[in-house]
Design a protein around this nucleic acid. Structure first.
Lengths: 221, 221, 221, 221
DNA sequence: CATGAATGAGTATTCATTCAT
DNA sequence: GATGAATGAATACTCATTCAT
């Protein structure tokens, strides 16, 4: 018997590997069908495993969905947080970094974002979903209020606006066949700059200062 | 006893009236429970009619949902189109009118919006919603390219950004409990101005001209 | 189309008829397989209807089982109560009547008895089953204590003994191929007399009196 | 480190020891949960071994349950048979011995009795239990016909009645919370005497002789 | 030998959909 | 035409059973 054993039939994998496999499939299916529309059969089929295994590693459908939500939220939050970390640079550079990380996450992990944001806030997960969305948008609001000096009362709705705008742009980029004319630069970076071109002046106006990112920022990353 | 009533409690209504009754109930139920979560029983109960009648007037569940989608989409599109009609005013005033109409439709017909966007964006009707979204974005792109002189290649992604931003702000307004602190002004107008404050300067910068809406616009409407 | 409509396909029956049909099937299946062993599929098949109909008329499996328990218990209790009613006759004649009614119920409605008595007192119905059993045996104990003067402290265990004896005898009668040699008399009456021959003297000894039923009792009934 | 232990926590036990361990656990679990309610996981956990080991030593679930049934049945039969053995004493003393042994087995091995009678009397093992019951009843019938001179044609139904009565009394004793008021005497003996008080006179009347056990029997045992 | 990991087959329950009246 | 009654098809979840290590 070779080192890879039989390719077909029962595969005996390490629990954490299986768990990731199941969660990946669940995120994919939930993002495509929604919570109610997704069936545990579909998740199992997508993962290429049997249904009991899904239950063994993901728990009930509710627990599985919650696990998907949390994993994807943490990933997104960490990615943006790491990118927006206070490195002594100007706040606007941090915003740009954060947007790049956000677009990177959005374009490379589409399903995770869909699970987090395209799910209705009705049903048994309204609380969970809302709390996670609040955290994500809260990050943006903190950045705007704390670093950029946007007045507190409007920071939250503006953060929602910003996130929505980013999502609309990403949707276009991901879904539109004509959207490939961005050259050979890193797409996430291009998208971030496009978004900044639209919302940057408005934010700058809110803070009263000039529009610093109209001057080139060194292409760190 | 008129011709419209019968011995029994059954009301013999004109077909189009019945159809509207059923559609209204369906929009309400779908917006609250989602496509999969809503049951035809619930729709029938909400409409105050029997289930076979729902089938007679609304077709299958899929057809019924599609009908909801289309009716609400047409309403939204017409409202925006009417508001953005070329009335000889400056293009940016037209944009502002369009945004106000958009937010007005959304805040007054909340259920329709929810059905269109939050419930259908995943699942078997993602395609329908996408097509509708494309029409809305097309309107915005026309406005930007035709009226404002935004260079064609960027008009489309910018329109996507704009529409996404509007959706994000709308979601905040509809879903966030703290979002009611807009004073006693017409909420739709406030939302439109909030959105313009964020994206307006950027769009104006693209066209090279001044920022016309920074000067008060007569509160027509 | 004749008066009996189509024999096959959907039969539209009155709700109470269907309910009885479903309950009868449920009693039969539960008595044969036990609560856990019985499947709702089996109940539906036995009733000759579809599974949703079983749910429509019987509720959940738990509710269905509880309904079976209650219906059969009421039937048995009423049958025995009616037979043992205080008609001014000697208490022992009432006991004999009660036993005849009991055997009649046992031999003609075997499944009902099995559901009531052969189900384990473990599981979600321990309370229900115990309460019903208590009522049935309580009837016997009342008869023994109230009418026959059996001392209270032993009336209950003796009632259990009596019921067990009756059940054993009925088992023999129902299950044993050699048990048909009872002539052409009503079997329930013969069984009652056989049981009285075994336990009668003992009960009489407990009360201190003679053994009255060793002298012929007029064959009323 | 002896040959019986290994490096790991696994205990390498003699097969018959393991088998008894498994059977004991199975009897316990089956008696508490019923055949369908019991899971092989629960049996394994109760036995403190892994599930495959249960299969290795107990066979399939059906085989395991049948093995429980047979072991407990043999124990009960042997106990009664040994007690009723022809020791030269009066037949009625033998009957009393047998009853005491029966109730003793029952009160000391409650789980075994529950498995045999309350769990298996319905479901796929009704036949097995019936056969066992026939053997027990046969013992009683032999005693009555052979020793006590009860006429053959009635010995069998009377034996069924007797065994049924014993079961009813046993169920009361095991299940009724008020059944512990038997003083400090050996419960099995008290139960035997209670049963004899009910059925003894009747049996004695059948044989025409006196009632021998109304005179004290030396408390051998 | 002993076990953790995996699965095929089944169970209770619901829902979209359609006859029979 | 309108409805109560009925069902086929699915869905979440579990369990007896068996490989692979």
């Amino acid at each position: 018997m070779t080192a890879e054993t039989s390719r077909t039939g029962r595969q005996r994998l390490a629990p954490e590997v299986r768990r990731r496999q199941v969660l990946d499939a669940a995120v994919a299916v939930f993002s495509e069908e929604g919570f109610h529309g997704a069936s545990m059969d579909a998740v199992a089929a997508r993962a290429g495993v049997s249904k009991p295994l899904v239950y063994a590693h993901g728990g009930s459908k509710d627990e599985l969905f919650a696990a998907c939500l949390h994993r994807e939220a943490e990933r997104l939050l960490h990615a943006v947080q790491a990118a927006a970390g206070d490195t002594g640079e100007a706040p606007l550079v941090r915003l740009r970094r954060a947007l790049r990380a956000f677009f990177h996450a959005l374009t490379t992990r589409r399903a995770g974002w869909t699970v987090l944001y395209r799910q209705a806030s009705t049903g048994p997960f309204a609380g969970e979903v809302d709390a996670l969305r609040r955290r994500i948008v809260g990050q943006a609001a903190d950045l705007m209020a704390g670093g950029l000096g946007v007045p507190r009362p409007v920071a939250l709705p503006y953060a929602h606006t910003l996130v929505g705008a980013a999502e609309g742009l990403a949707d276009w980029w991901l879904g539109d066949p004509e959207a490939d004319g961005v050259g050979d630069a890193e797409p996430a970076d291009v998208l971030a700059d496009m978004l900044l071109a639209v919302v940057g002046p408005g934010i700058a106006a809110l803070t009263g200062g000039p529009i610093p990112w109209s001057t080139p920022v060194s292409d760190e990353r």
